[in-house]
């Protein structure tokens, strides 16, 4: 176990956890992604509560392990990582810094998540919105060609101006 007393002085458990990166989108920290619910210090240990992005998100276990490792290396010898589901995660929780980093990495950041009106959820049969800016050339209008991308949270789009395909983090 790597114990670094100096690091321990500099960084509280919250700071250590906040710097852990998302295993599928390593340009984002867990803090950017908005999945950290709480970090409580308890003597030499820490209890971390996170929330998964999607029900079946395969990254959640790696996140938990990476949190344990980071806290272990920072000198926390008892680490417990809890996962809670409610309230459900929303892309609205991604920080401004996170949105900027996504765009810089060529992934169009999500727009505002749809508000839930009362009554049955309406079916969407129309063509997907074109109002997603191309993260490469900045063209304001692009087209979705698959709602499901390489990770659970992205859709695939292409830009008619620069012809480049790109991922878009879809709003939920």
């Amino acid at each position: 176990m790597v114990t670094d007393p100096e690091l321990r002085v500099d960084l509280g458990a919250r700071d250590v956890v906040a710097r852990v990166v998302d295993p599928e989108m390593p340009m984002l920290t867990l803090d950017d992604l908005g999945v950290i619910r709480s970090v409580e210090e308890d003597g030499g240990g820490a209890v971390v509560t996170i929330t998964p992005t999607y029900s079946g998100c395969p990254a959640i276990e790696v996140m938990r392990d990476d949190i344990r490792i980071a806290l272990g290396e920072a000198g926390y010898d008892r680490v417990e990582v809890r996962t809670v589901f409610s309230p459900a995660w929303s892309t609205d929780w991604i920080s401004e810094a996170g949105r900027r980093k996504l765009a810089e990495a060529g992934i169009a950041p999500p727009g505002k998540a749809p508000a839930r009106a009362a009554g049955p959820i309406p079916l969407t049969l129309g063509a997907p919105s074109t109002q997603v800016r191309c993260p490469r050339c900045g063209a304001p209008s692009t087209e979705e060609f698959s709602r499901f991308g390489p990770t659970a949270c992205t859709a695939l789009r292409r830009c008619p101006s620069c012809q480049e395909p790109f991922e878009h983090m879809k709003e939920i």
């Binding site: 809670v84 409610s86 995660w89 049969l125 709602r147 939920i172």
Partner: peptide
């Protein structure tokens, strides 16, 4: 209730698909 909270978001795009 928690599963429903996440599931509603997911099922919405399953159904749209």
């Amino acid at each position: 209730a928690a599963v429903a909270g996440k599931g509603v978001k997911e099922l919405t795009y399953h159904r749209d698909y």
